[in-house]
């Protein structure tokens, strides 16, 4: 227990003292996972909308596929991406290994099924009744689809919150693609909160690990609250 209390006390001192290493790692985590969420949203939102709004052959299979990918182990995904992105791998020419963008790309793939599944489910939960309502009020196919999309705004926001939280909290991709590189003052650092927590814990630097853990939790809470607030304002 003493270890934990001392750890928490030390963590609070590190946070309140605005330790520059802690601040840099936290900022990188938000940046990398924010970028991952942005990248994933560019293809996942349209895909989720299309799967939710339209009927086509193989739709059920596609939905099952994305649902089953929700639980993909991040280490396995990290390993696959590592093998693809190392200089001798088929995608080595992209130069993404051991870079922030590489982690973002890997996390984007990780959270793609989350956004698609959430958006698809939220559309399907209102699609029939909202579409019919819009039609009875004179909407054509396009306007009815817009009405359905408006009604699913809460689901879209929720999917983005869930996706960001999954990205910022994952370890497998960040450590295998990023490599936990950290040299004070370097622009090539890739250390993020999860890789740092893992490293400091294994080194026995519990204060630092707890400090970073608290910050990680705070980021998750704050992002969720801000997006929920924005969503309620939209509604």
């Amino acid at each position: 227990m003493e270890l934990i209390f001392n750890g928490i006390r030390g963590a609070i001192e590190l946070i309140l003292g605005a330790n520059p290493d802690v601040a840099e790692i936290a900022a990188r985590s938000v940046r990398v996972s924010g970028m991952a969420t942005l990248i994933a949203s560019t293809w996942s939102l349209p895909a989720g909308l299309a799967i939710g709004l339209y009927s086509f052959k193989g739709k059920g299979l596609l939905k099952s596929l994305f649902n089953s990918m929700l639980g993909i182990p991040t280490v396995v995904l990290g390993l696959i991406l590592y093998l693809l992105l190392v200089p001798s791998g088929p995608l080595g020419f992209l130069g993404l290994i051991y870079t922030e963008m590489g982690i973002s790309f890997g996390q984007a793939l990780l959270i793609t099924p989350i956004i698609i599944s959430f958006v698809t489910t939220s559309i399907e939960s209102v699609e029939k009744e909202v579409r019919e309502l819009a039609k009875t009020l004179g909407a054509g196919r396009f306007d009815a689809s817009i009405a359905v999309m408006r009604e699913t705004m809460a689901g879209v926001v929720l999917s983005i919150i869930a996706a960001f939280n999954r990205a910022v909290a994952e370890l497998g991709v960040a450590i295998m693609i990023g490599g936990n590189v950290f040299v004070r003052g370097s622009a090539l650092n890739t250390r993020v909160l999860t890789t740092a927590i893992q490293m400091y814990t294994s080194r026995g630097d519990i204060e630092m690990a707890i400090a970073l853990g608290i910050i990680l939790l705070l980021i998750v809470f704050v992002v969720s609250m801000v997006l929920n607030f924005l969503q309620s304002r939209f509604a």
């Binding site: 009875t136 909407a139 009604e151």
Partner: peptide, 19 residues
Amino acid sequence: EDLKRRITMVFQKPVMFNT
């Protein structure tokens, strides 16, 4: 398409847009 602008139905269980 034309008639859908001239015929309106109100459902038994009212459906509201979330606004």
